[in-house]
Simulated assay, not measured.
Amino acid sequence: MKINQNSIIIALFSVFCLGCGGQKQETEASTAKKENVEATDQVSLSDAQLKNAGIVVGSPETKSMYKTLNVNGVIDVPPENIYSVSVPMGGYISRMNLIPGMLVKKGSVLASVEDQQYIQLQQDYLTAKNRLKFSEADYVRQKMLNQTKATSDKIFQQTESEFNNQKVLVSALAEKLRLIGLNPARLNESNISKTIHIYAPISGYLSKVNVNTGKYVNATDVLFELINPGALHVSLTVFEQDAASLKIGQKIVCTTSSNPDKKYNATIHLITPNIENDRTTSVHCDLENFDQNLLPGTFLNAAIQLNGAEVQAVPDDAIVKWENQYYVFEEKAKGQFKMIGVETGASLNGFTAIKPKSTLQNIVVKNAYAVLMKLKNSGDEG
């Protein structure tokens, strides 16, 4: 069967025209969709709106950001910085006015104690001191007589021995007086006292007061407990799988549950080389800043900075979240902003690392959510 050549040409031309028409319609639809998407990602604000919303424009910054490990811990005091205060010789508490938590200065009187044995000790010292003067004079006299052979060597040796023994006794009694806080050089027969004072060995906080006025205390009793406030440190509990990523010198940012906005800085100085039965280890850190609100036993939340890298970062207030995606607003012209999608990274000290798809210049760094609300409200109105 013979096919008309003209008919074939006409048919092919018709198909081509139909294809071109469909492609044109698809291109027009795609362009309209793109323009519609771009329109929903852009917003314009007047000068008055910018001022009222407190919009601030700035540039992303290069920051050293860290991956952090979040752990828990407590404020602790090393044993060498906890001072237990006792009285060297027992007695009755005659005066004290202390409350746990008080700050006391080194050398201040914590309490006064009375007992008759203090009187006896002062009497023994003064008596021994007077006998020493007699023994010394007798020793000098016997030494001169012995040199002229007017007295035997035996008598001189006995006198010398008694003199030396009396010197030992006076020295020992003087040390006992110093032990209870009395100065033997100032002691005489007219100022013998039944009272001694207990002084603060350091400047610090009273963590425990175990006595009251009128109570009898023994030399073995702990009357007070003082804590050196400059020796507070952080004791963190870290799980076994995280311990390998820690090292001495790493920085830590701590907060308390009662005041999470207040940040305390610390540095790791000791990692316990042992895993406990609960599969954890203890990490001890030096506090760099602290105040009177930090007391031993205070619970802490801590973020350990593991590793650092130079990244592009923006203030936290520059990032908005919409439909589970993160965005920033780039200023295209005065008062004109476009919403740009970004990937967020680590956050530190009010900044968050971002990974934009293109280079960002000027962005909204403060009150970005105000721009988002304007954008979405404008879209709803359209």
Rank of each mutant, 00 (worst) to 15 (best):
F156T: 11
D115P: 03
K133H: 12
L98S: 11
L132P: 01
I99Q: 14
Q120W: 08
L110I: 02
L132V: 04
D115E: 03
M144E: 15
L126I: 01
T127A: 11
P100F: 08
Y118T: 02
Q142C: 08
Q117P: 06
N130W: 01
S171D: 13
Q116D: 11
A172K: 13
I155V: 15
N165T: 14
K105E: 13
F156V: 08
Q142R: 15
D124K: 06
K149M: 04
R178F: 05
S112L: 06
R141Q: 07
L173D: 08
L98Y: 04
K154N: 15
S135V: 09
Q116S: 14
S171W: 08
K143P: 05
N146V: 06
A150R: 13
Q147T: 09
T151P: 09
L103I: 14
Y139T: 11
N97F: 06
V113Y: 02
N97Y: 07
L177A: 00
E136P: 02
D115H: 01
N130C: 06
Q116N: 14
Q147N: 13
Q157W: 07
Q166F: 00
K167A: 09
E160H: 10
R186E: 15
Q117E: 08
P184Y: 04
V109H: 07
D115N: 06
V140K: 15
F163G: 09
E162W: 04
A150V: 08
R131E: 15
D138I: 06
G101V: 08
L126T: 06
L103W: 10
E175L: 13
V104G: 07
G107A: 07
M144P: 12
L126F: 02
G181K: 01
K149D: 08
P100W: 04
K106T: 07
P184G: 03
G107M: 03
G107K: 02
G101A: 07
L98C: 08
V104K: 07
N97C: 11
S161D: 12
L182S: 00
L173K: 06
A111N: 01
N146H: 12
Y139S: 12
L179I: 09
V140A: 15
L145I: 00
A174M: 04
I99W: 10
K154T: 14
Y139W: 10
D124I: 05
T127F: 13
V109Q: 03
L182I: 10
E162G: 12
K143S: 13
L182V: 08
Y118L: 05
R141H: 02
L121R: 05
Q116M: 11
M144W: 13
S171C: 03
N97I: 11
L110H: 05
N165Q: 14
E114M: 03
D138W: 09
Q117Y: 01
N164Y: 13
S152H: 07
S161W: 08
P100Y: 05
Q166Y: 04
S94I: 00
I155A: 15
V170D: 02
I180W: 01
Q123F: 11
V168H: 07
F134Q: 13
A172Y: 12
V109S: 00
L110V: 05
Q142L: 12
S152V: 03
P100K: 11
R141L: 03
Q123H: 12
M96H: 02
